[in-house]
């Protein structure tokens, strides 16, 4: 659990982070979203003390993060940034081995961990271990950046616009991978982005920042349904609201007994994608399949109900 307690950061005369308090429960993803310059990065960097707050405190599992020397704290917290920040003079394996090396793991354990992580990110260890960062594609570099951040099995992972430089297809894949990894290891993640779409897709909770202030910190459905300020509403985009709500639900949750014609939809599909598919194929309803077996159907009407403003 990360508790950010009345954290303020002042640079000169500018209050970059203004009395922000928020709690990230263990094993959840909190996404900090806001326009550029709103103080997201600064707020996130107070967690691993790359920024020391002017006032306020950050506690991790109840303990003030100033209890340890900063470098020891940072070795326990994964850190991945936009443009990955890989060391250009070190191989992929050496990059991933950075924190385990700092922690003094033995060579064999490090080598095993490197291979394990490469496998986890679907990169063949034999082919990638000895490559240099410049020999990788942007998406591969980004994956190595996250693998490096996870190398010492941290409970907490900080990510600053990790997908900012990726094209939409690679980005969607990377987001899927992150959700899978988070679900598997129960990592507590704080992720900074300026993209509300990404925030809604990834966050268990979303923190909306503007000019250093935390405007709202809620579950995605609440942010969409009950924006705290006009700015939050604008950030979500009024015309997008129904579709953003739909994107929070899976077809499986909406399936009802019954039959329907045509190609089945996968139960894991988001309601938004299902809605688009029904509109496109001109159907009123479609069968829902899980692991190849039909488990029910969804109807256009049912989906539309989901998209309406919650009462």
């Amino acid at each position: 659990m990360i508790e950010i307690d009345a954290v303020t950061k002042v640079y000169g005369t500018q209050t970059v982070v203004d009395a922000v308090s928020m709690t990230v429960p263990s094993g959840t993803i909190a996404v900090i979203v806001g326009t550029s310059g709103s103080g997201k990065t600064t707020l996130m960097r107070t967690i691993n003390r790359l920024v020391e707050p002017t006032s306020g405190a950050v506690r991790i599992d109840g303990e003030d993060n100033r209890a340890l020397p900063a470098y020891e704290l940072r070795r326990r917290i994964g850190y991945a940034i936009q443009g990955h920040g890989l060391f250009p003079h070190r191989t992929v394996a050496q990059n991933i081995a950075t924190v385990p090396g700092l922690l003094g793991w033995d060579q064999k354990r490090i080598a095993n961990r490197v291979d394990e992580l490469l496998d986890l990110f679907q990169l063949d260890p034999a082919a990638f271990r000895e490559r240099m960062p410049h020999e990788l594609s942007g998406g591969q570099q980004q994956r190595i950046g996250v693998a490096r951040a996870l190398a010492a099995e941290p409970n907490i992972l900080l990510m600053d616009e990790p997908y900012g430089a990726l094209d939409p297809i690679i980005r969607a894949k990377a987001q899927e991978d992150l959700l899978a990894i988070q679900a598997r290891f129960g990592t507590t993640i704080v992720l900074v982005t300026h993209d509300m779409e990404e925030a809604i897709r990834l966050g268990h909770r979303i923190a909306v920042m503007d000019a250093g202030k935390l405007l709202q910190y809620s579950k995605p459905a609440d942010i969409i349904a009950k924006p705290a300020t006009p700015f939050v509403k604008e950030l979500i985009g009024a015309p997008e609201r129904p579709f953003r709500l739909l994107s929070l639900v899976r077809v499986a949750d909406l399936a009802e007994p019954g039959e329907a014609a045509g190609a089945p939809l996968d139960a894991g599909l988001s309601a938004r994608d299902a809605y688009a598919e029904l509109l496109w194929s001109g159907r009123e309803a479609a069968p829902v399949a899980r692991d190849g077996a039909i488990v029910g159907r969804v109807r256009l009407q049912g989906l539309a109900k989901q998209a309406a403003r919650p009462s």
Binding site: I81, Q82, L102
Partner: peptide
């Protein structure tokens, strides 16, 4: 960014 990553990962 390289320097930031190095510090952020806990290098002295």
């Amino acid at each position: 960014q390289t320097v930031d990553a190095a510090t952020g990962m806990g290098m002295t």
